[in-house]
Design a protein around this nucleic acid. Structure first.
Length: 504
RNA sequence: GGGCGCGUAGCUCAAUGGCAGAGCAGUGGCCUUUUAAGCCAUUGGUUGAGAGUUCGAGCCUCUCCGCGCUCACCA
């Protein structure tokens, strides 16, 4: 273990404590209240004019101002912070010396005493006894705190993103705003579960290790089971398993969990990310749109207490109904190309080329349309927008529109210029589904790319009969970004993936 | 993977190619109501790693490592 000078000094203090018979990491804690409870109770006692209670508090030392015969410190726990007031009259000379000689910022302390107000009016604990709960060897990377209008302002705090992500514990310990993001995140999934449970959905768990992956277009992570001598894939979506459950007569199911995609990393992509998918029998994509709006509005109400949020400088309003843009019409308006008039790969390529849109050579029609969505529509969908009616060849699991086999009943939801969710009326015709899988396999072969292996068991499930249903998927990390105003996915992941460092 | 940018003390940041600095934290001292406490003194550096140019490199050049932004990829 490499220690720097500051750490060596603290280690020496720890050794001196042990030499003096003081255990720096005691096992039992005797706190009677959280810090927030103690403050609240004191304020109530003050109002009623009753005597303040004796309490024992536990927390991390966040500031210390020692001045010989008296001293002040702040202790912080998960509930809040309170000032500790030490005075030689109560503690005696030896204890005051101990405070100075053994304690550093970042240590955990147990303090017993009576709640009081100091001369300046700050609620404090008049300490009559204190004890080390856990000695910190490494100093926390925060400089100083200032309290302005009751808000803690941390000066020159840990700011370097690399250190913040690699040592998230330190980031969380010193940056309360960061802790708040993850409280909000937990609130979002809690509210989502409440909403879905209220709509009659059953929460389920399906395999993460899968012998065949599918349900999305992404390269998988591969792992291996030793005893079975079998390669397994980490799932790239939940879709094919959840729909099997509809065959099995669960009408409404959802899963919240981790997906793994072996793709590039960016401000909106992490190799593992949290996804929510639901499938509901007897719903089509239009009904799913309504459910989506209502779910997000419910989450906003519960978590933010408002349907408005600020993201990337824009005020975003999640109040239903969201704007609806038909894909074909949207593209006509955005770039003057009517995809219905260009029914082949070559025709659409030519039309895009004529407009100077730099279409990707050799790309199939669906990919070209996707390119136009990404270039012209997605960045402009700041307010919540449903883009609907997608080309069939980029949607192999979605059902065609009645009377228009080239278009499927699919929508994607965009917010803040970012794709948030994806849904469709599910294809439940087993013969059509098999044909689509084979078609897709041929397309992959032609591009010499790794294709999803054909999932025969999924097709068997479809042959047993799946009710007409609507399916939906949403990136939870993206939703958290939007509702917490964070531009990078790394800010809403506790431990975002970073490249391994050689020197660590 | 490509392009652009960044990397200096524990933290936040300075430093025309010319003595590596400040604030905070730390250490020693003074201080019985402070609150970014104050005052006095003081420690702390392989400037991400390596090579090159130069009388002289934190600064210029090259290679590597890491991070950020961006593009590509992501039916």
């Amino acid at each position: 273990m490499e220690l720097n000078d500051l750490e060596r000094i603290r280690l020496e203090k720890l050794e001196r404590m042990r030499a003096a018979g003081i255990e720096p990491y005691p096992t039992r804690v005797h706190n009677t209240h959280t810090i927030a409870e103690a403050v609240k109770q004191f304020e109530a006692a003050e109002k009623e004019g009753t005597a303040p209670a004796k309490v024992i508090l536990a927390g991390r030392v966040r500031s210390m101002r020692l001045m010989g015969k008296l001293g002040f410190a702040h202790a912080e726990d998960g509930s809040g912070r309170v000032q500790l007031f030490f005075r030689i009259n109560e503690l005696g000379e030896e204890a005051m010396n101990t405070l100075k000689e053994h304690y550093d910022l970042g240590d955990f302390i147990e303090a017993e005493g009576t709640m009081m107000r100091t001369r300046t009016g700050e609620i404090s604990l008049q300490v009559t006894a204190f004890r080390m709960l856990a000695k910190a060897i490494t100093p926390l990377p925060a400089a100083k705190d200032e309290v302005v209008d009751g808000e803690v302002v941390r000066h020159a705090t840990l700011n370097d993103p690399e250190t913040r992500y690699r040592q998230r514990y330190a980031d969380l310990a010193v940056n309360p705003d960061v802790r708040q993001i993850f409280r909000t995140r937990a609130g979002i999934t809690r509210a989502m579960r409440e909403f879905l449970d209220g709509e009659g959905f059953l929460e389920v768990e399906t395999p993460i290790l899968q012998p065949i992956y599918g349900g999305a277009a992404a390269r998988p992570f591969i792992t291996h089971h030793n005893q079975l001598k079998q390669d397994l894939f980490l799932r790239i979506s939940f879709e094919l398993y959840l729909k099997r459950l509809l065959v099995g007569m669960f009408d409404r199911v959802y899963e919240i969990g981790r997906d793994f995609r072996n793709e590039g990393i960016s401000f909106k992509h992490n190799p593992e990310f949290t996804q929510m998918e639901f499938y509901a029998a007897y719903l089509d994509y239009l009904k799913v749109m309504e459910l989506t709006e209502n779910m997000v509005a419910y989450i906003c109400d519960q978590v933010l207490g408002s349907r408005k949020t600020t993201f990337n400088g824009h005020e975003i309003d999640f109040t239903p109904p969201w704007r609806r843009v038909e894909l074909r019409q949207g593209l006509i308006e955005a770039c003057g190309i009517d995809i219905q008039e260009h029914r082949t790969d070559e025709a659409l390529f030519a039309a895009m080329d004529a407009k100077g849109l730099k279409p990707k050579p050799g790309a199939p029609r669906g990919k070209l349309i996707d390119q136009m969505i990404g270039d012209f529509l997605e960045p402009n969908f700041i307010q919540p927008t449903f883009l609907y009616n997608y080309p069939r060849d980029i949607s192999p699991l979605a059902k065609s529109m009645p009377g228009d086999p080239q278009t499927v009943e699919r929508f994607e939801g965009f917010v803040g210029g970012m794709e948030l969710c994806n849904a469709f009326t599910e294809l439940n015709d087993p013969l059509d589904q098999e044909a689509r899988f084979l078609e897709m396999g041929r397309a992959y072969d032609a591009e010499d790319e790794e294709s999803n292996p054909l999932d025969e068991d999924y097709l068997r499930a479809m042959r047993y009969g799946m009710p007409p249903c609507g399916g939906f998927g949403m990136g939870i990390d993206r939703l958290v970004m939007l509702l917490t105003g964070q531009r990078s996915i790394r800010e809403v992941l506790l431990f975002p993936h970073l490249r391994e460092r050689e020197d660590e």
